[in-house]
Write a protein that binds this DNA or RNA. Structure first.
Lengths: 128, 128
DNA sequence: AGTTCAATTGACTTTTACGTAAATCGCGTG
DNA sequence: CACGCGATTTACGTAAAAGTCAATTGAACT
């Protein structure tokens, strides 16, 4: 496991810009350490970026992604906080389950659409 | 099956604003008929709105949603067009499959996070 | 006819998530 | 040391997707 990654290494790996990574730092999503003014990203930052990209692909906003990331962190020490966090996690899970239903429905409709196209091709006597 | 829905009926049903529905009309996503200047939405428009909301929840942009909606429509008559459409559909499906992978991974991590919280509660001797 | 209440239109504003440009900094090489 | 080159900072810009506001306009009761 490498100790540090430069900003451009990560922009290449995740196909994002330096502006984007600095923006995520401003937003508190990652906290690279500094050598002088230069940012050094640790493996944990890299993992966070991976989670951020996942969240983005799922259509979550930066704020929602921030919330989700906080859930992955070490659980709080106080009982009330713990129960609150469990509730939040359950909410996000319900959110994701809704997305999953949406996804399956959309996939099913696309399947149907493709079938119609293939049928039409067959009607036209095209060798599929 | 009802013949027409008013704009406010639909804003209530889908919890969106009239501005939003008019915006979708400007964008060509729905085409309600008019009685004078008043918009009358048909069941097909209602179904389209349902698909739009699904697309939005999945994080698709308006343009992407437009593309997807066009795929649901009657397949084109020309062979080249048909093959192109099948290719597009396959691309969207791949997109959705990626989203599904992201979704499952995120759900798995949330499961883990919740487990940590519950464990911590048990450590603290809380009756779950 | 008067009033009320939803609907329309158009203009302007807002929020999110970055993009872009300009100036500066720091460091390794010839 | 001059130079190049990547990284940083600061500030302004922008596209998408609506939200908001104001001025009308029907439509429908009474």
């Amino acid at each position: 496991m490498r100790e540090y990654y430069s900003i451009t290494e990560l922009t290449r790996e995740f196909d994002i810009s330096t502006r984007t990574l600095r923006f995520y730092e401003d937003e508190g999503l990652v906290q690279p350490v500094r050598r002088g003014r230069t940012r050094l990203f640790r493996p944990s930052d890299r993992h966070l970026i991976r989670q951020i990209m996942r969240g983005k692909r799922l259509g979550f906003s930066i704020n929602e992604i921030r919330e989700i990331i906080q859930m992955y962190r070490a659980p709080p020490g106080e009982v009330g906080q713990l129960k609150l966090m469990i509730k939040r996690i359950e909410e996000k899970r319900e959110d994701l389950r809704q997305k999953r239903r949406d996804l399956e429905e959309t996939l099913a409709e696309l399947d149907q659409a493709e079938e119609s196209c293939v049928e039409r091709l067959v009607e036209l006597g095209v060798n599929t």
